[in-house]
Amino acid sequence: MFTIHAIDPGTLESVRGKGTDVSGNAIEAVVAGGGEPLRCCLRDAVDGERLILFGYEPVLPPSPYREIGPVFAHAERCDGPAGTGYPDGWRGRSQVLRAYDARGWIHPATRVHDGSDPEGVLAAILREPAVVRVDSRNVAYGCFMFTVTRLHD
């Protein structure tokens, strides 16, 4: 079993409040054309929604594999994801499932999947004892989508 994590609401509030991302770059105000993947609530944007685009650095230990990439979120605080399971609207979307170990290094369990049976693929990756998290990333752009961690008993 596992849980899916969107970008932390506190991180989003900080970015919105400061108007800059982790690199000090100004966030960009965007009006959705529809289909932009929102990392605040893990769904695609609807045409006309007010969004921000900014550089995000997933929380990893210091390592050579830390990176910053562009993400979309609502311009104003939203209710967040509908649950902690795989986002229904993103089923069938090809993704890179990048596995990481406790050092923040990419683990060989990383794979590209076609979007079918994401729970099965994630469960198989998380069965690897050294894997502590999996970041889902967009295939075409490489952007961070969400993080997956094991549920702890």
Results as ranks from 00 to 15, higher is better:
P62D: 04
R50W: 03
P70F: 03
F54Y: 05
Y65S: 09
Y65K: 10
P61M: 04
G69T: 09
V96E: 10
E67A: 09
G80F: 02
Y86N: 02
A82S: 08
H74V: 03
S94V: 09
E67L: 11
F72Q: 00
P64L: 06
P62R: 09
G69C: 11
P70W: 03
P61L: 06
Y65L: 01
Y86W: 10
G89D: 07
V96M: 12
Y86H: 09
G89C: 07
F72W: 03
W90E: 08
F54H: 01
V59F: 08
G55H: 00
E57G: 13
G80Y: 04
P81Y: 03
I68Q: 09
L97S: 09
E57H: 08
V71K: 01
E76F: 05
H74C: 11
P62S: 04
C78S: 07
D88L: 07
P58D: 11
D47I: 02
V96L: 14
D88H: 14
L53T: 13
Q95W: 02
P87L: 01
G85W: 01
F54R: 01
S94W: 03
D79R: 13
R93M: 14
G89F: 08
P64S: 11
F72Y: 11
R98I: 14
L51K: 00
P61Y: 10
P81N: 02
R77S: 08
